[in-house]
């Protein structure tokens, strides 16, 4: 029982990342009809927002203080991080919480990147075939990740967890088990909650705002909405920006769990595409459900008992499930009838 709970939780946080990326992919596909292979690169860009923010606030300026001496008799070099000059007493807090705080930076940045990408490139590919969309966004993904590589180099950048969230939560105790039976890293729990909030916000935005209503109407029948005199293209562009923000935030908060390097996006992209296809192209609930489902399946498959039963299953489970689903249920789990069946 406790092993199952532990695996369930393990799967949930990975599933949360899949779900967030897949949600963005589906949003883009559902609104603009574009298959975006550069979406993983947006996830990676978000992660590097956190890296860049931390690099910036910890940039040290060195001043030589003649009055004090270092232990070996030379004038003492005083190193002050950028944050201290700017924010004074807040600096330690700022540096400690650099990852969550960089969200503030990531939101406008990702929105800008998303809108620039849509207006600059993807706009021209609405009418072209899906194969061409895949190709151009694949090329774009290469360009983005290579750009990041030129600035940040090929090595991963580990980011610290804020000190208050280090350590593990005794999840087992919450469910009435004995203390210490199931523990779970606190930051993963934070990530899970964060993903829940973002997912809820996106769904609420689409569900309860006029803007969201128009977007949903546009997803169902773009032409009619356009005929009603609504500038649906602009709204879809904004949705692309929002999808980029969602991917970016998923990336920001994931940095303490997995040190990002320039290749991070590609690794997640393939999986999240599989997630989207399993959930059903164009279905938002499907993408989220499939994200969590596959995350959990993957973590169960990596249990030693199951690996002993079927060796190698943890490596292929996601792809295997995808193949099976695609063959027996062409629309995916929750896909709408008639959308991308073929």
């Amino acid at each position: 029982m406790d092993a199952i709970l532990a695996q369930l939780l393990n799967g949930l946080d990975k599933g949360a990342a899949y779900a967030l990326i897949a949600l963005g992919l589906t949003l883009v596909f559902g609104t603009l009809g574009v298959v975006n292979f550069a979406h993983g690169a947006l996830f990676m860009l978000g992660a590097f927002c956190a890296v860049a923010f931390r690099q910036f606030i910890t940039t040290e300026t060195v001043t030589i203080d003649e009055t004090q001496l270092s232990p070996w008799g030379t004038p003492l070099e005083v190193r002050t991080p950028m944050a201290e000059q700017w924010f004074g007493d807040w600096a330690p807090f700022l540096i400690d919480y650099s990852v969550p705080i960089s969200i503030v930076l990531a939101i406008p940045f990702m929105l800008l990147v998303g809108i620039a990408m849509e207006r600059g490139l993807i706009k021209h590919f609405y009418k072209r075939s899906h194969a061409e969309q895949i190709l151009v966004t694949f090329g774009l993904a290469i360009v983005l990740q290579e750009l990041v590589k030129t600035f940040f180099g090929p090595n991963p950048w580990p980011q610290p967890i804020p000190s208050d969230f280090r350590g593990a939560a005794d999840v087992g105790a919450w469910f009435g088990m004995q203390a210490g039976a199931v523990t779970y890293p606190l930051w993963r729990l934070v990530y899970l909650l964060f993903a829940g909030v973002i997912l809820g916000a996106v769904f609420a935005f689409l569900r309860f705002t006029t803007f969201g209503m128009v977007v949903r109407a546009g997803m169902a029948d773009r032409e009619t909405v356009g005929l009603l005199g609504i500038n649906i293209d602009r709204r879809f562009t904004i949705m692309f920006g929002i999808a980029a923000v969602v991917a970016g935030l998923a990336g920001v908060m994931y940095t303490p769990l997995l040190p990002p390097n320039y290749n991070l996006g590609m690794d997640f992209l393939v999986l999240s595409f599989v997630v989207v296809v399993v959930g059903g192209m164009g279905s938002l609930p499907g993408a989220v459900a499939a994200g969590f489902l596959l995350g959990i399946l993957q973590s169960f498959a990596s249990m030693t008992q199951i690996k002993a039963l079927i060796p190698g299953i943890d490596q292929i489970i996601i792809y295997f499930v995808a193949v099976v689903i695609l063959l027996v249920r062409p629309r995916g789990l929750l896909g709408r009838r008639g959308v991308m069946e073929g």
């Binding site: 393939v270 792809y319 193949v323 695609l326």
Partner: peptide, 15 residues
């Protein structure tokens, strides 16, 4: 399957 599903299937098998 055809179209993007074919691409994903081949990708899945290769991975």
């Amino acid at each position: 399957r055809s179209g993007i599903y074919f691409s994903i299937l081949t990708l899945a098998f290769a991975q």
